[in-house]
């Protein structure tokens, strides 16, 4: 699915990622954990194609394509999804209209006809119910005056409607209370299947109680310093980043 080799990234001359390797296969869930400033969010932006980041070295292969050559929207329509840490507000644009536009952009890219209004309404309703999102909320402007938790649920709703091949969750747990965390995690777990993959970026082991990863990686100073299975997350919780990084 995704193969990152020797990735070096800088922003405004400052080196952020310094030789990162990561390989994610179909059907796998990987967790990426690390302290502030270790390069976690930068990696999510580089994968989704945000500009201002300079790729100094390395390659990223995504399903046989050179990911770095694709535009942001091409990557999205090829099934790469980023659940934002800080989802953007778009005043004047109804949430449901935005969802419809996103779905039809993808269908257009794939050479399919637009989803008809009824089919769309049904899909949206069922997915929203799963996440405990009211239809009232879907009529409001996208993310405008949403609480932190509502914004994160909205991200997961978009993800489940677009059913991506490769989903990156950037600190989706931050700002969530325990109930919201459970609902969001269940939403993610429902999507998991043998054809898609997840990269879950988080500070805390807490989220991983709900979304059980197949692999856990620890990133420090722009490099993956340790990889393991779920038990690594527990070890990290016990020892802290500093000790784990040193023993790596």
């Amino acid at each position: 699915m995704l193969e990152i080799k020797n990735l070096h990234v800088s922003i405004e001359e400052k080196k952020i990622i310094k030789g990162l390797d990561l390989s994610i296969n179909k059907g796998e869930v990987h967790a990426l954990m690390g302290p502030n400033g270790s390069g976690k969010s930068t990696l999510s932006y580089v994968l989704s194609g945000k500009d201002k980041y300079e790729i100094n070295d390395g390659t990223i292969d995504y399903n046989g394509k050179n990911l770095l050559e694709l535009d942001v929207d091409e990557r999205a329509n090829e099934g790469l999804f980023l659940a934002f840490q800080y989802p953007m507000e778009i005043p004047g644009v109804q949430t449901s209209f935005f969802l419809k536009t996103a779905i039809n952009s993808k269908r257009k890219y794939l050479g399919q006809s637009e989803m008809d209004a009824l089919e769309f309404a049904k899909l949206m309703k069922s997915k929203a119910e799963e996440l405990n999102i009211s239809t009232e909320m879907l009529k409001r402007d996208l993310n405008v005056n949403y609480s932190g938790g509502e914004k994160k649920k909205q991200e997961i709703l978009q993800m489940s409607m677009l059913s991506p091949k490769m989903a990156i969750l950037d600190e989706t747990d931050s700002g969530l209370d325990i109930d919201a965390l459970r609902i969001v995690s269940e939403g993610v777990n429902k999507l998991r299947n043998s054809d898609n993959s997840f990269l879950v970026i988080t500070h805390y082991q807490r989220l991983l109680n709900y979304i059980k990863p197949d692999f856990v990686h620890i990133i420090a100073d722009g490099k993956i310093v340790k990889s393991g299975d779920y038990s690594l997350a527990l070890e990290l919780e016990e020892k802290g980043y500093e000790e784990i990084s040193q023993t790596a």
Binding site: V72, F84, I90, F98, D141, Q158
Partner: peptide, 20 residues
């Protein structure tokens, strides 16, 4: 960027935001 990450090309993204 947010709109493009959801699959809209840059012109559709501008159109959407400006219409809003």
């Amino acid at each position: 960027f947010y709109c493009q990450q959801r699959g809209l090309n840059s012109e559709d993204a501008v159109g959407l935001i400006v219409n809003g």
